[in-house]
Amino acid sequence: MKTSLIAAGLLTLAGIANAQSPVLTVYTYDSFVSDWGPGPVVEAAFEETCGCDLQFVAAGDGAALLARLQLEGSNSDADIVLGLDTNLTARAREAGLVVPHGLEVPSLDLPISWTDDAFLPFDWGYFAFVHNADMANAPGSFEELIALPDDVKIVIQDPRSSTPGLGLLMWVKAAYGDRAPQIWEGLAPHILTVTSGWSEAYGLFLEGEAEMVLSYTTSPAYHLIAEQDASKTAANFSEGHYMQVEVAAMLEGSDQPELAKQFLSFMLSDGFQSAIPTTNWMYPAVIPTDGLPEGFETLIQPSQALLKSPEDAASVRDAALQEWLTALSR
């Protein structure tokens, strides 16, 4: 009894000591902080050097992050938002949420040039529909997918809450422009369900609830490398694939601006970037010194990369969303 009391006292003291080291709060999406995601590795690596307590807070999927920050306003504990993408940066800036990082940016291994003064990229990839390699008549374009029998199902994510969902909206818009509503009407009968986040959609696919799921060209690498399972592949669409560049930024309301800057510069160093390919299963923004892991060379390479500028993405978003809602609510 006595020892347990002493132990409890010591634990409390340890808790107080811990509470005295500064806390850096990072809002991110759910899968980033899952046990198999980058969160635990990144946390351990950063805490080794920062003398701080790095706390990840999972706030739903990427696009819901933005709403969460707006909802909390100046009351937010968050210092950094990590996991928005270029389709959302203009909105976040307009809402006055982020501040310039003021850092010297190292050279980036992105397919595009990077000039943003507030957002820094941490990884990138291409959206793609992932399916089992043995799927009969796997589609090679949106139109081939539409032409498949209605009982071939896909799972997609809600563009209002999820960055892959929003990415698909932009993908269809970038590839088809004014024909986007027709494409959505054609896809509608194939959509098993619309989930609010990526994790749930991918889980449904893995459980066999649907033939295909909206994910990334890099997702099959997870099965190949982590599970030695070559049975998953991504469909290569002839329209080209929309690109996602995932970003982080320091928040206007942060009470730890120096620590936040330190984190952002750590984010582009090897300690963070080397974790990305095999935990977040994306291409790192800065290729680590060891290069990409073996297995990444097997992934499909899109014939064309599609990406709207942040301003374009923001300006078409509302109209595209209405088209999506209208087509899918019939």
């Binding site: 709403a67 909802l71 209002r160 619309v194 809602l325 899918l328 609510s329 019939r330």
Partner: peptide
């Protein structure tokens, strides 16, 4: 629900609030 096709008013309120603020 299965997306926009099966959304109740209550769910739409939640989405407008939580997803888009």
């Amino acid at each position: 629900g299965g997306g926009p096709r099966a959304t109740t008013l209550e769910l739409a309120i939640y989405q407008a609030f939580r997803f888009e603020f």
